[in-house]
Structure formats: structure tokens, C-alpha cells
Nucleic acid binder design. Structure first.
Lengths: 201, 201
DNA sequence: GCAAAAATGTACTGAACGGTACGGTTTTTT
DNA sequence: AAAAAACCGTACCGTTCAGTACATTTTTGC
């Protein structure tokens, strides 16, 4: 195995364990037994446990935004259809067990090495993309003209409230099925559209 | 000091430390130095560290809902004014450093002894109260008739999204000032009212 | 005032963990 | 093939921690 491949294997195993059991709940020895080799090998790639943690969580969070932005389709002309489709995709992505776990750890270890700040920055980046789409609809008169960034924030809140909080609080587990996701996206987008429909006078 | 008083003193000190540093970050010895006495005393009141944790977090979460419901004033007749007032109160309460810390720990230790489930149950209880208020407005025609429970959920999402997430992710600290809270409540309630205004036709 | 119950201090156990040392082995590079 | 780098296993160090044992003192109930 290559040096880089080894390094990546360590990161992968560490990511999986950190994601499942958090920072304190994961021991270096555990990582070595998963990835093979010995502790010394890990400490020749990463100076401390915390550096290893930050590095693999950073990569995971980077993947989060990349995957989410890919769901955005700016070609539509009807806000309802476009937002519903985006909402379903983003929910089935963001409510997946992996992503819930990443989010969980990001909050739990928020004060450790700025992993929370990083996660927040990624959310802001995603919001910017959504805001651009909303801006387009506002310019065309399909939506009421208003602060597009803030509208994107509210849309995210409406999308996430129904499914994400129960998952984060471990009240339910597993990926909700398609019907449920579609329903949640529908209810959120419906409220959002009413809140941002063009003024009727 | 009374036996009950001692027990309460232990709970208070433990609560403060757990709230600040989480479960793993707090040691029993630390609690003893804060409360006086020795470890043996703690272990004669609580069988394990986890039981102590659950007991004081449970009390804290109970207080959460009690304090929040007390903010509800069902006497008003104008939804905008009533919800804005409720929103401001609930935000300045829920965004306080103590409550943010409780929420933080509730998520971080969600899988430990069902503290997450308990927290969720309390949120549902609060939602029920808000839904009753919304129902009243829906019945009077001040709001569009719809699922009041779900409307309360969406209202909470809109209220919390602007201030709470940055606090949970440690992107900002301290209690936001009154102006900011009023603004956040205003924006959330404005969107909510638009989404739930009676149909005009 | 006395007996029972509870609180206290100290010292300890046993286990887990992060991180290091080191000598032998494999892999890569030149 | 030789030299260099990376890898491996094992043993170890120092520390921290939950929880216990026990003898002593304080508080409480009658």
C-alpha cells in the first residue's frame, strides 16, 4: 500500500469511527485495529489525535456542501416545482444516516478546533447558491422581491424542521422513506411559497 | 446541611459542570471539589455517574418547558402582536447561554440514556401549547385554518433559525441584544403570518 | 443524651487512554 | 542491489478516571 493510500485508509477508518462514536468515544487503538498496522503508523502520519479528527471531519464537511450543491438545478422556471425538487433531494441527502452523524458530531464537538465554524461556513456557502436561485425567481416576478439570502435561510429552516431534529435527537433512526421526504418537502415549500408569493393587489 | 440540601447541591454543581463540559469532560472529582465533601458522598446519593447526569439534565430540561410555557400569553386578539411578543420572549429565553448549553448537551449526549428523547418530548409539549394559541386564531378567522400543530412547528423553525444555529455551532457567543432578538422575532413572525394569512378571494 | 444513619477524608484498585521507544521487516526509490 | 523511507508489533510511560473500602467524624431522630 502506497503512503498516500495508507494515509487515506487511516482517514477513512477514523472518519467512520469518529462519526459513530465522537471524539472521546473513539480511541486511537480502535482505529488501528480497523485499518490494520499499529499506533506508531498513525502517529507518523498525524501528530495528534485532534489533528486527525479535524482533518477527516473537514473532508467530510467539504463533501457535504459539494454533494448538496450538486442537487441544485437552476434551469426551471416555476418556483414551486424547482424548490420541491430541490427540497426532496436535499432532504434525502441531509437526512441520510451519514450526514446526520456528521452534523451530530459537528455540533457535539463544535468548540473543538473550530469544526463548528467550518460546518457553519459550508451551510452559508450552500445558502448562497440557493439564494441565487431565489434571486432569479424574484427578478422574474415569480416570487416577491425581498432579501434572498434570508429567504434561503428560512427555506432551509422549513425544510429541515420536520425530519432533521428527530434524527439529531435520536428520536428516530434511519433514512425516512421517499413518501415521507416528499411530504416534508411539500409542506415546507408550500409554506415558503405562501410567505414569498408576489403581492396581490 | 440537610440530606436533601446536600443532594440538591450536588445536582446543582453537577448540572453546571455537565452543561459546560459535557459528560466525558466532567469528572466526579471535579464535582466534589465544587460542592465540597468527597467522592464517597456523591456515590452514596447516586449509584453511577450516568444516573447523576440523567437526573440533573432531566431537571434542567423540565425547567426549560416550564419557563417557556410561562411566556405564553393567550389573551391577545391580534396574531401579529401576540406572536411577536411570544417570539421575543422565547428567543431571549432560548438563546440564553444556559439554555444553549443545555440544548448543546442534549444533542451531544442524545443517545445516552434517552436524554434526547426527553428533550424532544418537552419540545412537543411546548408546541402543543403554541398550537392551542394558533388554533384560537384559526377559529376566529385571524389565521387560515390548517394543521395547528404543524404550524407551530414551522413557527418554531422560523424563530430559531436565525439565532440558534450560530450559537449551537459556537460561531457566536453570549446572549444577542434586545434589538437583534426583536428583529429576528419580527422577521420570523412576518414570514409566518404571510404563510398563514387567511385566503383572500 | 444516645444510638443509628449519613457524611467525610484518604487511600486505593483496575482499567483505559494518548503518546513514545525501539528493533525488526517490508516497501519504495535511486 | 543498495540505501532510504515507511511500516509493524509490542511493550511501555504517565496520567486520568469511575468506583470502592474503611475508619472517623458529624448529623439526625427519638
Amino acid at each position: 500500500m502506497n503512503r498516500d493510500a495508507k494515509r487515506q485508509a487511516i482517514l477513512d477508518a477514523a472518519y467512520r469511527l469518529f462519526r459513530m462514536h465522537g471524539f472521546d468515544g473513539t480511541s486511537i487503538s480502535e482505529i488501528t485495529t480497523q485499518v490494520g498496522g499499529s499506533k506508531a503508523t498513525i502517529y507518523c502520519h498525524f501528530p495528534t489525535k485532534e489533528v486527525l479528527f479535524v482533518e477527516c471531519m473537514t473532508a467530510a464537511v467539504e463533501g457535504y456542501i459539494t454533494g448538496a450543491v450538486a442537487q441544485l438545478d437552476a434551469s426551471g422556471t416555476d418556483p414551486g416545482a424547482a424548490l420541491r425538487e430541490f427540497g426532496e433531494k436535499i432532504l434525502s441527502f441531509g437526512a441520510s444516516p451519514d450526514m446526520v452523524a456528521v452534523r451530530h458530531v459537528s455540533i457535539a464537538e463544535a468548540s473543538r478546533s473550530g469544526i463548528g465554524k467550518l460546518f457553519f461556513a459550508k451551510i452559508v456557502a450552500l445558502r448562497t447558491h440557493v439564494a441565487a436561485l431565489l434571486s432569479k425567481f424574484m427578478a422574474s416576478g415569480a416570487l416577491r422581491a425581498d432579501d434572498a439570502d434570508f429567504a434561503a435561510t428560512q427555506l432551509r429552516a422549513l425544510l429541515e424542521v420536520e425530519l432533521l431534529e428527530p434524527l439529531l435527537l435520536h428520536v428516530r433512526e434511519g433514512l425516512p422513506d421517499e413518501k415521507e421526504i416528499a411530504l416534508a418537502a411539500d409542506r415546507a415549500v408550500a409554506a415558503f411559497l405562501k410567505a414569498y408569493e408576489p403581492d396581490r393587489r
